[in-house]
Amino acid sequence: MPVEIDTSSEKFAEYAEPGRLVTGDWLQARLGEPGLVVVESDEDVLLYETGHIPGAVKVDWHTELNDPVVRDYVDGEGFAALLGRKGISRDDTVVIYGDKNNWWAAYALWVFSLFGHQDVRLLDGGRDKWIAEGRPITTGASTPAPTEYPVVERDDSLLRAYKEDVLAHLGAGPLIDVRSPEEYDGSRTSAPAYPEEGALRGGHIPTAQSVPWARAVAEDGGFKTRAELDDIYRGQAGLEDGDTIVAYCRIGERSSHTWFVLTHLLGFENVRNYDGSWTEWGSAVRVPIVTGAEPGEFPGR
């Protein structure tokens, strides 16, 4: 049974779906409650082991959410086995948190959503805020009782964009590039401080607007207020209700963060994450690329 939503925050109440976020207070008071599973998902595969929220289970994006051979996510059976192992039932409330302002937590949430897991939320501010607030952390192992999670086929049609979808989308709707300005203008192919992950060309997809993911993050590491987010995405980037939107970054993790903001906090109904992102587009043959600080025109229209 889903756990009630967190109604304690005035900030959350302004969002399109207030129930998609929880505060540290709310979560701490409910740790161990039946029907609630806490999941940590980090960039660093060992960070969970250095200390995690009591009872939380780890889900690693590299080794658990991705298929080990094909560049894709696990299939329905793989997902069912994973969630069964983690002690998650189909109707459980899942609260995800992680490092880097919840990049990987948002990525995990997005993958859970591809499988139609209904009640999946983020801990606002993620791991760092929880620790900064002096809340409990343990290195004690979590030993969830395995569950029988049903095999549900992944539905990529609504939330995920493939390269072909992006090509078809060019000129038909807005694209949001959430990478750093240096990646956007083509002066580098990976995030500052990130490894060169095999994109052969630099620049951005024509017509894409640059809205770096971190613009959605407040000083305290949580999400900015509804008014601030509306100003950034509706005001400055010009997104409008009814738009079909595609967001991308380098491998789809930072754009999951923006996807979460656009979908759950601002209420856009048709937002897809292009997880192939720059590591695919920047190496694909004969796809259009624009360099420089301007979005550029789509040559075909």
Binding site: D44, L47, T50
Partner: peptide
């Protein structure tokens, strides 16, 4: 950094 235990390892 301490938040990067894999890299530290």
């Amino acid at each position: 950094p301490a938040e990067a235990p894999t890299t530290r390892g």
